[in-house]
Design a protein around this nucleic acid. Structure first.
Lengths: 109, 109
DNA sequence: CGGGATCCGTCTTGATACTG
DNA sequence: CAGTATCAAGACGGATCCCG
């Protein structure tokens, strides 16, 4: 995805400006989810193809890293990098805003 | 667009989670742009159809309002409502994050 | 003529079925 | 369980059209 301009908002949106990326980061940062199927269980029902794509994108951007676990079968766990954790304040600000400006929102679960 | 869950992040993303909505709000809140053609001039080059769509969406959400100006011809100016202005902290947080985590970003212009 | 809506081809995103 | 392949649906960009 090519950068549209040098504006920080524009650059950030090139990376996180879609309907799913911040949902995945929410699950990583706030709910400590780590495995593929855990992300699939969230109430927004992300599809497998989108989840695969967003995990790759976040990995390439250096916001998350994946490490294999389990001895024989290939299983991955995903976790936020230090850089990924710096997005928490952005998420928090969005939560604050939504709570005050969108009716009937709760943190799910 | 139907709400995917009651999570505030998800709800917010249903409204502002795309590549253009926050660009328009940036122009409204930080650069005080008000007219259709002013938004078109931004370096990200939004197309007229997308701009029309986003302005309608933001108006329906109560984040901006349009008022006619000019005596005879029908011209509109767009301005953020009080509710729209409450998104400024979210934008600021994104700017902070991008400045520290994405290389070579400046506020354009 | 200038503001903005509509149409259409293309590219991107998403849902589902399926595989290692 | 963790993805990939396939195909459908939607978003985008640009041109054009329409109205005041």
């Amino acid at each position: 995805m090519n950068r549209r301009s040098d504006c920080p908002i524009s650059c950030a949106l090139d990376l996180i400006g879609d309907r799913w990326t911040l949902i995945v980061l929410r699950d990583l940062l706030f709910f400590n989810k780590t495995r593929f199927d855990e992300f699939l269980e969230s109430p927004e029902h992300i599809s497998t193809s989108v989840l695969t794509d967003r995990l790759h994108k976040l990995e390439r951007a250096g916001l998350i890293e994946k490490t294999p676990y389990s001895s024989h079968r290939l299983r991955m766990t995903y976790s936020p990098t230090e850089k990924g954790k710096t997005l928490a304040p952005v998420l928090n600000e969005i939560v604050c805003w939504a709570r005050q400006n969108i009716e009937d929102t709760v943190m799910y679960g």
